[in-house]
Amino acid sequence: MTLVLNRMLRHEVILGVLLVAALIVLAGQSEHFWTADNLLNQGRLMAEVGLIALPMTFVIVTGGIDLSVGSIFGLSAILLGVFWQNMGLPLPVAMVAAILVGGIAGLGNGFIITRFKVPPLIATLATLALYRGLAEGISQARSVRGYPDWFFGLGQGEVLGVPSQLWIMIVCFVIAAFILGLTTFGRTTYAIGSNEVAARFSGLKVDRAKLLIYGASGLIAGLAAVIFVSRVSTTRSDMGTGLELDVITAVVLGGTSIFGGRGTVIGTGLGLILMQALKNGLALSGVKGDGTIVVIGAVLIAAILIGNLLSRDGD
């Protein structure tokens, strides 16, 4: 037990050192990096990925993966517009409905995975196409604009000087860290990822836990979509394309094992901040947006590479 704890801590310490080093280097590159305005703005920009990364940590700890989050994000965003503008629902109701649709889409994933025993990678690859296809089919590539001013408070406003969505993310972060680290549900999550058969024979409700986790993944993707629409003040069906890559990179960078059974929410938080710092720092030192994708891909492979090389003696 202490051995496991030590290993987790070790990865987070490495990550913490890496993060500090990156921050120092990036601060040296541009005087704009280390300003409150820039940092708070970065917090705003990473809130959507950060929110989805929380349930994704649970998903990957169980040994699964959810590739459909980007598509659920797009579907919820489109439906928010459709519910409000085309069906004439009041905007608050439309927001709740859009988030719930995300939850239902996530439960759909969980149902396919637990009931039909389809590997999560393939199940969510299929729903990635299906949910995005529904978003495209429903919207017919039309965008929805003209939301009322109060709606933008969620994505563009501030509470006590801090972007509103950052508060939401922090609250969700604390809840997720508490559930994974300190509750029986969290222990169940680790048990499923370490050895699913053993977890089943120990009487744990494996299927129910997975269903809840995939459902939460969809629900949070829906929430992130509503926040995103509020931030960019329009909806389009291609929103969130490739989002799953950012989310999975943050989680894996944070030390969660892609094989399951290992990982923490705090690690995910560190991975997320490191990723956003890299993106922002590179952008400030003149690298274009597409160049930063290259770096993130390379960092993803390098992080696992180093992790594998280090843990080889341990295993």
Binding site: K288, D290, I293, V294, G297
Partner: peptide, 23 residues
């Protein structure tokens, strides 16, 4: 040989190739 799951390697390659090409 390095035993990184193919999904992770190719997700990384996806963004390296795509980002590299466009930049």
């Amino acid at each position: 040989y390095v035993k990184i799951p193919s999904i992770v390697v190719t997700l990384g390659m996806l963004s390296i190739l795509k980002g590299g090409l466009i930049s």
